[in-house]
Amino acid sequence: MTTEETGASPTFAIVPIPTSLATDPRYSRHTQAVITQRYRALRLHALKTAPAAFASSYELEVKRGLDQTLDRLSNPKAINFIALKANSESKDTTTSDDGLPELLMPEWMAEWVGMIVLLGPQSDDTSSGPSARRDPFAKMTGPIEALEDQDTVDSHSRPRYALRYHLNGVFVNPSARKSGLGQRLVSAALEKAAAAAREAQVPMKCSVLVDSENDVARRVYEAAGFRVVAREAYVQQPRELVAGESQASERVALLMKVELGSPGDR
């Protein structure tokens, strides 16, 4: 009997998809196919359900095959977190290092209801950050620019570069909204970034782009410590799924950032 039938609250888990999905011999072709198909279905569903919330469009993404989806999931600088809604009365589950067992559960046991992508890291000495006018995925998953030569610069005088991350592709299914799940997705991604910064003993910075009219998303990020630092006009290409949108329109994106100044802050 499901939680909806008993009246119990559903259980949510936030699970990262391993970026080694395509290369690790532990993961069979069947496992790759199941995860890739479910991820693609969720992303297309997100683009259909909330077309105005994404820079991309359903019309564009539906043309991309499973091979392109697997390549995207296997990028080491793009960690995809999936929110699972489990029909269980057990206590909520936090992120795990390898959530394949949960991700492979049949949908009647664990429904995929949300997602977020953590892009990066890039070093803080790069010339520019993500922009609403360019694809953040391409910008943040490129090679890290070399830092100053550590052999010729004294460690006490060398600037402490931060690891810079960016949140992208955030979505919560309408059936799971108003449950705090959006905040949990953001927290899971930030904790992953913060852990990498602690290991490198450098600060961590994270950014996100939010449409200026998306008040709900802005409040979620503000609750996680993000603050608006800039506004940027960009052109949104027309999408058939947005009623009345027949031509490209100019919109305004908010650039929001959060910074953890020392490795022990989080």
Rank of each mutant, 00 (worst) to 15 (best):
40 R>L: 13
140 M>Y: 12
86 A>Q: 07
40 R>A: 14
101 P>I: 11
150 Q>P: 03
228 V>I: 12
156 H>T: 00
100 L>H: 04
239 R>A: 12
32 Q>E: 14
85 K>L: 14
175 S>V: 13
25 P>Q: 03
234 Y>G: 04
111 E>C: 11
148 E>A: 05
207 S>M: 10
104 L>S: 06
144 I>K: 13
264 G>C: 14
200 A>H: 08
249 S>C: 04
140 M>G: 09
127 S>R: 07
6 T>Y: 09
153 V>I: 13
39 Y>G: 03
121 P>D: 06
97 D>H: 07
112 W>Q: 13
163 L>R: 11
158 R>Y: 05
112 W>L: 10
52 A>S: 05
85 K>S: 14
197 A>D: 07
183 Q>F: 03
147 L>Q: 13
242 V>D: 07
236 Q>H: 04
127 S>Q: 03
224 A>V: 05
266 R>Y: 15
141 T>P: 00
140 M>S: 10
98 D>S: 02
107 E>N: 12
19 T>C: 15
240 E>R: 00
194 A>L: 13
164 R>F: 10
206 C>R: 05
129 G>H: 05
220 V>R: 05
42 L>Y: 03
264 G>Y: 08
145 E>S: 08
56 S>Y: 06
157 S>P: 05
20 S>T: 00
224 A>P: 00
149 D>R: 00
196 A>Q: 12
47 L>N: 08
99 G>M: 05
231 R>D: 07
